[in-house]
Design a binder for these strands. Structure first.
Length: 904
RNA sequence: GGACGCUUAGCUCAGUUGGUUAGAGCGUCUCGUUUACACCGAGAAGGUCGUAGGUUCGAGUCCUACAGCGUCCACCA
């Protein structure tokens, strides 16, 4: 056989016996993972400044880790995030990029404060904030956050994350605080941060404002009451919130509604439950005449919709619900201080008594509740800080290649353009639409919070004076007591972690970052806000790609929750199945933006694969580790058909997997690798290798390549094998095998195809055996007849063929004995000696049936090939492909006809 | 109310620009311990691709309508 090209030999380090021989049969992940991680970390591979020269000269590649909240521990969603980001980082590091993955944690303001409060209450305090005071309380929160950080970082390490710990950041550390203050100052100076008295979402439970995104809607039922303010009022109105009616300053009707036309413009002063109110009847097109009575009481203080109407019609605003979710003095003496439910009950009773209620219906309603805590959210006007998204401001620098420094734009325009222009690509693409939709509906962002844990608003007051500064401007100044929405500091994350507002080396090198990988559930909260902050402050995008993974659910697709008891914890699973298996289960069989149904069985399956790879490696190491074999192989460097086949396949897999990883087709890449490793390599090539022997050169090459290809997916087992084998350096910084893709040696591919044909014969022969009940242990006699070319090929590879089909003897070119069982395989007929136990009738029936199917198939192909429209319109390769299929089918038909003739 | 997604084998899901007998893993069934692996191997069964139309030489793939499930947004007071 011709020698295609030589393969460099790799020698194991140790000159002693095979490194594979002493390895345990089953891979024990937990006994090696921690040590491997420590070695990586110590080697400097996580730090771009300590990478090999090849990487130092490469292009920068940076991912900033979405900082887990310091609220306790990590969950499967974090595990998925880490698995995917580590995969990307390792892939690009191996490809020679200057790879940097920055770890960090998020103070998570309200979430963390609430967690600590709950903890203190559980420990016996009644009102921890009151009892401890701001400073002492904050100390407790800081302690808790510090503990969380330790736990989280340990878990991040457990996942095998190759992030640069020397660059670890915290959203609330000193440097990040500087960035936050600087950003606040800039935006304030540009007039896009401003203080204003507006309706905000108020969480009465935690006594703080919320952004629109922190309000959820819970489905429920509401009492829809149709009533009159008092006897004298000319017509009834409808509401689900009677207690807010003290704050009504208008009644709105549709301009074209004939029922109310006469009243438009009139002002009434009804006495509503003891409180005189003043309402003017206004016409507004926003009113649906078909809903309720077609007239609604306008409460500008407690409804954003009504507030908009109030602006249009110049209405007065009267606050009747206070921060404590109780009625204010504006509700009149009898109602002031009542809770909302109490007030509502009392009003309904009073209206009922007076006969003012026309009807009460139950209607479905979505109740606004706080995302955290679940308390009903009240809309109350207050003095707060806002980021104005629709206000034009003069840009501080050239921006996004569209605006010049000094030109005006709004934040919304910047956010939109970053994605419209393709400077940011979102995977999967459909979320692009969601993103635009969100931006188009975006309102000013309320950024001040009345909680204690967070970045203090850098604003100081003295009398009526106000100053924006991180430090006190002097004696007599007091700082704004509020803190900033946690997403304000998160929005700066890609560049604050790189040193901004300093113009650092890292910022120059690594920004914009390569990709932002996170769950789709925080597209608005976070991703969009990063785009806002970055385009504003740097005039550039924060990242080029956004990869959104799905939410991790249980095997029935339900959300994981403690109350359902269906929570899978990475920290339980890792000791049980190994980190690599957990990682694979979060990457393979998933698709971006699509929720992942995870089960322990799925992880078990990947644990099995980890073990399979381990044993493949063990087998190969045993082969290549034997010095005597190596000597023989050096002198006989010829390649068999199987060698050409597996090397061709390997080349294809390298090219394809690389392309897929570049396109973020992570799952597909992994599945292709698995099929190659388990299917082609283990089930076929290694079996052939056992028969043909003397393969250490090819085996070494394959092992090195698949370890590299698998490394980003399953870093631990691959690194462990790599080191056990004594291969050079460490796998984490090894070169990605793309350099192995040499120009395909001519003939190599055809020889690979020839092996495929042998493989088909083997499969068909095995099926024949199984159908006839000839168990594998029994050697059996075969005869193979048919196309000469194929017979020659099979004859040349008789030894392999015999082993694979467990044949005691194969007679070539002889027509099948009528007493033997037979099957048609491509262009040959395989017959098997079943020692006379053949059921001729049944065999004949089977052959006839198959013949009929084949004839039907051919007929279909012929019809298609006779179709002029098909011939003229279909591309030639499709037509040619069909032609080939027809020829093959015709050969099969001939063989089947032969069989039928023989049997009848 | 609006938008988006999903609907393919018993289960979980792939299926790239439409190309001709529809794939994987798990599960099921049969056989098997041949020293890499029983966390394994060999083989098998199993699908009118949600429904109805349409475009096309050709549709799981494109278009329209409908149905079921899910998610996000809006918030008719």
């Amino acid at each position: 056989m011709p020698r295609m090209f030589s393969i460099p030999m790799s020698r194991p380090n140790s000159s002693s016996a095979s490194p594979g021989a002493s390895l345990p049969k089953a891979y024990d992940a937990s006994s090696v993972e921690d040590e491997i991680y420590a070695d990586w970390e110590a080697s400097g591979a996580f730090n771009p400044d300590e990478l090999p020269a090849r990487n130092q000269n490469g292009d920068p590649y940076c991912i900033v880790m979405p900082p887990p909240n310091r609220t306790g521990t990590l969950h499967m969603g974090h595990a998925a995030m880490l698995a995917i980001e580590d995969l990307l980082i390792r892939f690009h590091r191996m490809r020679g990029k200057r790879a940097l993955w920055i770890p960090g944690t998020d103070h998570a303001a309200i979430a963390t404060q609430v967690k600590v409060e709950q903890k203190l209450i559980a420990e016996g305090m009644v009102n921890p904030r009151e009892e401890l005071g701001r400073e002492a309380f904050l100390e407790r929160v800081v302690d808790f956050a510090e503990e969380s950080r330790t736990t989280i970082n340990r878990q991040v390490r457990k996942m095998g994350s190759s992030c640069d710990w020397s660059r670890e950041k915290y959203t609330l550390d000193h440097e990040r605080n500087r960035a936050v203050n600087e950003m606040f100052r800039m935006m304030y100076e540009d007039g896009i941060i401003e203080r204003g008295y507006r309706i905000v979402n108020w969480d009465p439970q935690f006594q703080t404002t919320l952004s629109d995104d922190e309000v959820e809607y819970r489905e429920g039922k509401a009492q829809f009451v149709t009533f009159k303010y008092d006897e004298a009022f000319p017509f009834p109105i409808s509401t689900t919130r009677p207690e807010t009616k003290f704050g009504d300053t208008a009644v709105a009707v549709h301009p074209d509604d004939p029922r109310y036309k006469p009243y438009i413009g009139q002002t009434f002063e009804p006495v509503f439950c003891g409180k005189k109110i003043t309402v003017t009847v206004i016409a507004d097109a926003a009113v649906d005449p078909a809903f309720g009575t077609g007239a609604l009481g306008v409460t500008p203080a407690h409804s954003m919709v009504d507030a908009d109407m109030a602006v249009r019609h110049g209405l007065q605003t009267i606050v009747v619900i206070g921060k404590d979710a109780r009625m204010t003095a504006e509700a009149g003496e009898r109602y002031a201080d009542l809770t909302i439910p109490d007030a509502r009950r009392k009003i309904l009773a009073e209206l009922e008594d007076k006969g003012l209620i026309e009807k009460v219906e139950e209607i479905p309603q979505n109740l606004p509740v706080a995302q955290r805590g679940g308390a009903p959210v009240e809309q109350i006007p207050m003095e707060q800080w806002f980021i104005r998204v629709n206000k034009p401001f003069a840009l501080r620098q050239d921006t996004l290649g569209k605006w010049r420094k000094g030109e005006e734009a709004t934040l919304k325009e910047l956010m939109r353009h970053a994605v419209v222009s393709g400077q940011i690509n979102i995977y999967p693409d459909r979320f692009t639409k969601t993103y635009f939709h969100w931006i188009d509906h975006l309102r000013d962002w309320c950024i001040s919070r009345q909680i204690w844990f967070g970045h203090r608003i850098p604003v100081w007051y003295k009398g009526t004076e106000m100053a924006v500064s991180s430090e006190s401007p002097g004696r007599g100044w007091t700082q704004d007591p509020d803190t900033l929405d946690t997403w304000f500091s998160s929005g700066l994350w890609t560049f604050s972690t790189l040193g901004w507002p300093e113009r650092t080396h890292d910022l120059d090198a690594f920004h914009p970052t390569a990709v932002l990988e996170t769950g789709y559930d925080i597209l608005f909260f976070w991703v969009a806000r990063m785009v806002l902050m970055t385009t504003y402050a740097l005039g550039d995008v924060p990242f080029h790609d956004v990869y959104l993974h799905g939410l991790i659910r249980d095997e029935e697709g339900r959300k994981m929750s403690k109350s359902l008891g269906n929570v899978l914890d990475p920290l339980d699973l890792i000791p049980k199945y190994g980190t690599d298996a957990v990682r694979l289960s979060l990457v393979l069989g998933t698709s971006p933006g699509q929720d992942v149904n995870l089960s322990e069985d799925k992880i078990k399956g990947f644990r099995n694969f980890t073990n399979k790879l381990w044993n493949i490696s063990r087998f190969i190491l045993m082969q290549i580790g034997d010095p005597s074999i190596e000597r023989r192989a050096s002198s006989v460097a010829e390649r068999t058909l199987a060698d050409d086949w597996i090397l061709t396949r390997l080349t294809d897999v390298i090219v394809s997997v690389t392309a897929k990883l570049e396109k973020y087709e992570l799952s597909s890449a992994g599945e292709e690798l698995r099929d190659f490793t388990w299917g082609d390599l283990a089930d076929w090539y290694l079996e052939v290798a056992k028969i043909e022997g003397e393969k250490q050169a090819v085996l070494t090459r394959i092992l090195r390549s698949i370890l590299k290809l698998w490394h980003p997916f399953m870093p631990f087992v691959t690194e462990h094998v790599w080191k056990t084998a004594g291969f050079d350096r460490s796998l984490i910084t090894a070169e990605w095998p793309e350099h192995l893709v040499d120009p395909r040696a001519k003939g190599s591919m055809e020889r690979g195809t020839q092996f495929e044909r042998i493989r088909l014969v083997v499969t068909d022969a095995r099926r024949l055996r199984a159908e006839q009940g000839i168990e594998a242990a029994r050697m059996a006699a075969f005869s193979i007849s048919g196309a000469l070319e194929m017979l020659d090929l099979l004859k040349e590879n008789e030894a392999v063929l015999k082993q694979l089909i467990r044949a005691s003897d194969i007679r070539f070119g002889q027509e099948a004995d009528p007493s033997w069982a037979s099957t048609v395989s491509g262009t040959v007929t395989i017959a098997l000696n079943v020692a006379g136990s053949i059921d001729v009738k049944q065999e004949l029936q089977k052959a006839k049936k198959e013949l009929k199917e084949t004839e039907g198939y051919i007929k279909g192909l012929e019809r298609q090939l006779a179709n002029n429209e098909f011939i003229s319109k279909a591309p030639s390769h499709v037509v040619e492909g069909l032609e080939v299929k027809r020829q093959e089918a015709e050969q099969k038909r001939a063989a089947l006809q032969e069989t039928v003739k023989r049997l009848s």
